[in-house]
Design a binder for these strands. Structure first.
Length: 863
RNA sequence: GCGAAAGUGGCGGAAUUGGCAGACGCACCAGACUUAGGAUCUGGCGGGUAAAACCGUGGGGGUUCGAGUCCCCCCUUUCGCACCA
């Protein structure tokens, strides 16, 4: 076996500084720590290495990974996410684009406050320390970010623009103040985020204390103003995963229906009051035999006032409902209700029907009141059966045959198409027709109207917490709510704050912060002490990257216009709703303000799968966490990145296997050793382009090279199955190993060998930047491989000259023949029939059919 | 309950349009080199058989010359939604 020829070691001597074939095995050894440290130090010297160009003539490409929360250390999910984005960014650079690939920190949020409490570190210090740590990890991993555009949301130069946007929203009536229910722990005496309420409905710090619902004044962003557009524009987001679009569609939850007012029947109630009911099936209203109220419906309090014994029952219903909501099985709640012994009047029929309060009616959808039509709704049916309420059929199925008599359907009959009966003047109509006519009639008569209901609620952004953007509002006794004037921004978050979880918002106890002057009257005013939801920060951060140091505006619209929309956004599917819907809202709001021209922030969205180990998500409690630092120390950054791309297609979950990354490490070493043996940078012959005439063996190497370039390029353009890209490169390297003897015997022209090596480095560059840079230098190339041109494949060179065709007889594989790629059908069939095994298989049979699928296979059908 | 995705060797996965199932990698086995091997190189590796035949992509049916891929029914897993009126 010939392992390299001695002259090839010329490349090594300037590299490892040693010589002599005897020491070969040691010199050839790939030491990722040595190589990666070397390049890490070099890259550190050049801050502008990955900077996007300004005023570039090149086509732009904005690739973005979702910014992390600086929790302390990177985990493998981050590594995978950024490895995908980094590969794409590097590929696009090599394709000649002006690439924007920034990174930042979603650095406000609760964990910093918890850390402050548990280790007495100020949130700012803790957060900035984590950022420094994670940034160092990212650099060590070799991610090509333009750090000159780094955005840190917890710093005033960023959050002042949150405040500025808040003022703009306020000016336009898109932010308003409203009482709203919040989770309140009586022991902590503070508000809890939903995430801090345990499954049993208790406080996370006091697991024996049930959380109460309290009404608090909160700031709300009127995202519902854009509900329709947020829904409609989903159709344009063709390069978003269908799953995400569906989730957003459901989240917006548009539902067309009719509002109908049922007047309260006189005795004892407030005169003229009525119950507004939302229904999608007003055509069934003559079948309504009761009205059902949510236990938390405002009218219920009124009923209780007139009928005290009701209170206990209602409390029970509320408790049942809340518990079911908390445990997540509101769908399976056993239906309970209580009769108020009051009546409502069906405005269509004039009929008096009883009013009930039921635990399955929720206040936060529709109007919190329904008309109950047991005959045509499963839930109403179940309830009516239980409480012996009347079931009245008002829709019949439409018979296919007009002669056929309509039979009464089995109840409940949830009809989508049918004909109304027992419905007064609206009898005999199709359902669709009845809905249209009855809605119109209700509107005409002034007791209802067609309407659209959304599940989407306005976005409550007030948080009674310290580590967030202060809401720039003042409360003046004389002037009421007064916005902080723009020129007084930012409202700085005070550094010295005593963070405890008692007594409400930490800021409310900082008197220097709270006490302010009213800009209108000059009198004393009190500052808003709530801070903003951190989703505000992440709703527009990617615009800031385009103009990160602008001190006069969040960003320059012209600059943003060059870069937007984001060409490719990459992140976890867990952000499919909140972050991505708030971001879409913010873009539309900024567009309507005239700041930008794009309707949507993100052109293409990619959601990568989770990193799991031993079948479960990595978590400290399971003890199956793999630390990136350990992986870097043991195998190197390239190996960690490459493995996270190789182990599974990026959209699927990745099952981390420690032995798997060893295989990648082996592969990287294999590549390195081949180059150490075969690079001949000083040889002019090796630098030349490959000759046109090649031996079959040389030709097969060249063919494999072009096939590999094609496979890798196609995947970048299309389906992103980087796992198969990497296996394709492995195959190419395996071919090169198999050819070493031929190389030694000079059967492969040096010119081709050089060409193949240069291309192997280019193909590896997006995935394994450290090794690629090392090899590029080893090849004697000038400049960074990052700015080398991505190779183009030659279809003719990738083309096989001879192909192996499987021959089936009656669909079973019986033989293989080798034919020229361009062979005619008749020739191929003839050769197939001449094959010994095929002959044996068809012996004594009658040939029925001969099928040749060009270039693929032959199937002979014989009986 | 509704919706979506998935189910392929001992394992991760490949098969891009209906055309050789198991690429590539791991693990394992054998050989080479070696003072040594948890390094490296070479070969083998779905089941079955002496070799074939034959059997094999969750199960059952179907379409087709041909099905992992298309159609129907069922099972399992994961994710999302869920009295949404």
């Amino acid at each position: 076996m010939a392992i390299g020829d001695k002259s090839g070691n010329a490349a090594v001597t300037n590299e490892a500084g040693s010589g002599g074939a005897a020491a070969r095995s040691n010199d050839e050894r790939y030491d990722p720590q040595r190589v990666e440290t070397k390049w890490f130090e070099r890259w550190k010297q050049d801050a502008s290495l990955y900077a996007a160009e300004r005023d570039s003539q090149k086509k732009k490409y904005y690739v973005l990974e979702m910014l992390p929360y600086p929790s302390g250390v990177l985990h493998m999910g981050h590594v995978r996410n950024y490895a995908i984005g980094d590969a794409l960014a590097r590929y696009m650079w090599m394709k000649g684009y002006n690439v924007l690939h920034p990174m930042g920190w979603d650095s406000f949020g609760l964990p910093a406050e918890n850390a402050a409490i548990s280790n007495h570190t100020p949130p700012r210090e803790w957060t900035l320390g984590n950022i420094a740590n994670m940034k160092a990890q990212m650099k060590r991993l070799g991610f090509a970010y333009d750090w000159s555009r780094e955005v840190t949301t917890c710093l005033p130069d960023y959050y002042r623009w949150n405040q500025w946007f808040f003022l703009k929203l306020y000016e336009q009536g898109l932010v308003y103040r409203k009482k709203s229910k919040v989770n309140w722990c009586p022991k902590c005496a503070t508000v809890l985020a939903n995430e801090q309420v345990l499954g049993n409905g208790c406080c996370w710090r006091h697991d024996d204390t049930p959380v109460e619902q309290r009404e608090l004044e909160q700031w709300f962003v009127r995202i519902t103003k854009y509900a329709e557009e947020l829904l409609l524009d989903l159709d344009q987001l063709k390069d978003w995963p269908e799953k995400v679009r569906t989730m957003q569609r459901n989240w917006v939850g548009r539902s067309e229906g009719t509002l109908v007012d049922f007047k309260l029947d006189g005795n004892g109630g407030p005169a003229g009051s009525s119950i507004s009911v939302f229904t999608t099936r007003v055509d069934t209203i003559y079948g309504a035999t009761s009205v059902q109220l949510a236990p938390e419906h405002p009218l219920v309090a009124d009923f209780i006032r007139h009928n005290q014994p009701l209170e206990a029952d209602v409390r029970k219903l509320i408790a049942e409902q809340r518990k079911a909501k908390e445990t997540g099985d509101i769908g399976e709640i056993e239906k309970h209700g209580v009769n108020t012994h009051r009546f409502a009047v069906n405005p269509f029929s004039g009929e008096k029907i009883p009013i009930w309060i039921a635990n399955y009616i929720v206040m936060d959808y529709g109007t919190g009141a329904i008309m109950s039509v047991p005959a045509h709704d499963e839930r109403d049916y179940e309830f009516a059966k239980k409480y012996k309420l009347e079931v009245r059929l008002v829709i019949l199925p439409i018979a296919n045959d007009p002669e056929e008599t309509m039979t009464e359907p089995q109840l409940p009959f949830v009809a989508h198409a049918g004909m109304t009966i027992n419905s007064g003047r609206f009898s005999g109509l199709s359902c669709a027709d009845a809905i249209r006519k009855m809605s119109a009639y209700a509107e005409e008569q002034g007791f209802g109207k067609a309407t659209v209901t959304y599940r989407l609620k306005d976005w409550g952004i007030s948080r009674q917490r310290y580590w967030g953007t202060p809401i720039p509002m003042l409360y003046c006794e004389k002037d009421g709510i007064v916005p902080v004037p723009e020129d007084q921004l930012p409202v700085l978050l005070p550094a010295k704050v005593d963070i405890t979880l008692t007594g409400g918002s930490p800021l409310s106890k900082v008197s220097e912060f709270v006490n302010a002057t009213c800009p209108k009257c000059g009198g004393p005013a009190r500052r808003e002490t709530d801070t903003m939801d951190t989703f505000v920060d992440s709703s527009w951060y990617f615009y800031r990257y385009t103009d990160a140091h602008n001190e006069r505006a969040p960003f320059d619209g012209k600059v943003a216009q060059y870069w937007f929309p984001i060409d490719q956004y990459i992140g976890g599917v867990e952000h499919a709703i909140l972050h991505l819907i708030y971001s879409r809202f913010w873009t539309k709001f900024m567009r309507d303000m005239g700041m930008i021209t794009n309707d949507e922030p993100v052109e293409r969205l990619f959601t990568q799968g989770m990193v799991i180990k031993d079948g479960a998500k990595m978590s400290k409690s399971l003890g199956n966490v793999v630390s990136p630092d350990d992986m870097i120390a043991q195998y190197g950054a390239d190996a960690a990145r490459l493995y996270s791309l190789f182990a599974a297609p990026p959209d699927r979950d990745l099952d981390w296997q420690d032995t798997g990354i060893e295989g990648i490490q082996r592969f990287l070493g294999r590549v390195y050793r081949f180059f150490v043996r075969q690079a001949r940078p000083g040889d002019p012959e090796w630098q030349k382009p490959a000759p046109a005439e090649l031996s079959p063996q040389a030709r097969s190497i060249q063919r494999k090279l072009h096939q590999t370039i094609k496979r890798v390029s196609d995947d970048f353009q299309g389906r992103w199955h980087f796992n198969t890209c990497i296996s394709a490169i492995m195959e190419l390297v395996n071919v090169l190993y198999g050819a070493e003897e031929a190389i030694a015997q000079r059967l492969v022209p040096l010119a081709l060998l050089g060409e193949v090596q240069r291309n192997v480095v280019l193909l590896l560059a997006p995935f394994a930047p450290y090794l690629a840079h090392e090899l590029w230098e080893m090849l004697g190339e000038q400049g960074s491989v990052l700015h080398a041109r991505w190779p183009e494949y030659d279809a003719a060179l990738a083309q096989e000259e001879e192909i192996e065709i499987p021959v089936q007889v009656n669909g079973k594989l019986r033989g293989r023949i080798v034919v020229p790629a361009e062979a005619e059908e008749a020739f191929v069939i003839e050769r197939a029939l001449a094959d010994e095994k095929v002959k044996a298989a068809v012996a004594g049979k009658q040939m029925v059919k001969k099928i040749y699928v060009p270039g693929k296979m032959v199937n002979l059908v014989a009986k």
